[in-house]
Design a protein around this nucleic acid. Sequence first.
DNA 1: GCCCATAAATGAACATTGTTCAATAAAAAT
DNA 2: ATTTTTATTGAACAATGTTCATTTATGGGC
Lengths: 199, 199
Amino acid sequence: MGRRSDHSREEISRMALDAARRLVAEEGLKGLTARRVATEIGYAPGTLYVVFRNLDDLILHLNAETLDQLHATLGEVVRHCRKPQRCILKLAMAYVEFAFDNPSLWGAIYEHRQAEGQRAPEWFQEKIEALFSLVETPLRQLDAGRSDREVRLAANALWSGIHGVCILGLSGSLEKANAGSTAAIAESLVSNYLAGYMQ
Amino acid sequence: MGRRSDHSREEISRMALDAARRLVAEEGLKGLTARRVATEIGYAPGTLYVVFRNLDDLILHLNAETLDQLHATLGEVVRHCRKPQRCILKLAMAYVEFAFDNPSLWGAIYEHRQAEGQRAPEWFQEKIEALFSLVETPLRQLDAGRSDREVRLAANALWSGIHGVCILGLSGSLEKANAGSTAAIAESLVSNYLAGYMQ
DNA sequence: GCCCATAAATGAACATTGTTCAATAAAAAT
DNA sequence: ATTTTTATTGAACAATGTTCATTTATGGGC
């Protein structure tokens, strides 16, 4: 059959991404297949390839939305705090919370990035950059005497560190009980690092 | 055809793991397929399933060998240093170096772990525990007054942190140039954390 | 109202994948 | 020699991503 329902490309894209998010959230990246997404939105598999270049492209856009959501969440956190040190700690906590609340969606971001050897497109990298700079701002306030280079280095160290804490915390077990100890580890990392940084 | 060559199960297992390691090292986890491994060792696909439960099981054993190799490498590092602080820093550097020298094999360890929802078997977890305790020893020497709980927390924070630094360093780009800045980030993380920890 | 050109959606087809298991061939035992 | 045992096979199955000739509905011109 040919033309049947009248959804624009944007609408189909949106429906597909919503279905994909549900599938990944419930069953992980492994649960995401072209045929399942197509069935969920009431279209044939081939239709997906009109909107997305391929499955990797669909996942990329799904991850982009997750990054946007994460950025919005973390952005809200830094707006509600004064002291830079407290800000950074809250950022770390919020990041851990987000990862534990959306383990599969959060995991899909880096699971997929390393899956294909190539680098992600520019606009995707920028979304990650935007997250990074959320830490740079309070870091700069913390000690105005530091060079941009030093601030970027510190932001990178902190962000990478928290990222790693989440990864190992989540891979350890999927029980909620682990979230608490993971938060404790994250706090240890941030507060000790900052203590050393300011000393 | 039936019985043909006379390799024991152990020999076939060894050949398969060697072939798998080569494939993963050269093309990443995506390059590893049952048929390719079978072809490489001159057996039919079905034979692999006599030795391993399935492909995941084969990858698990491959990762176990990588962990052993990593443990041997890091173990050598801690034997050649006196001051605990220097020890930990060297451990971190050696970890970064290993990750950058064997990006695909190192990546396969956690890429695979999160791929299947379930937890890895006991004997596998123990290999990871063994790596952890490499950091705990010098940490304990650093400040004998700390409780076991505190030491474990610090070891966890440091290890997770370095792990995260490697992940983001490698995902950033596969150029060797990145190894240098990644090492700098790792050093920043460790030295500042330890400074805060001792203060 | 009819017809045609255009665009949209299809779904059968292809190459690969992991995995299984009856069939088979060689070695070991009798 | 003959039988039994066992290791290995490779055809078969279901499911995957992806493509593209075919089909169908729509919108415009008469």
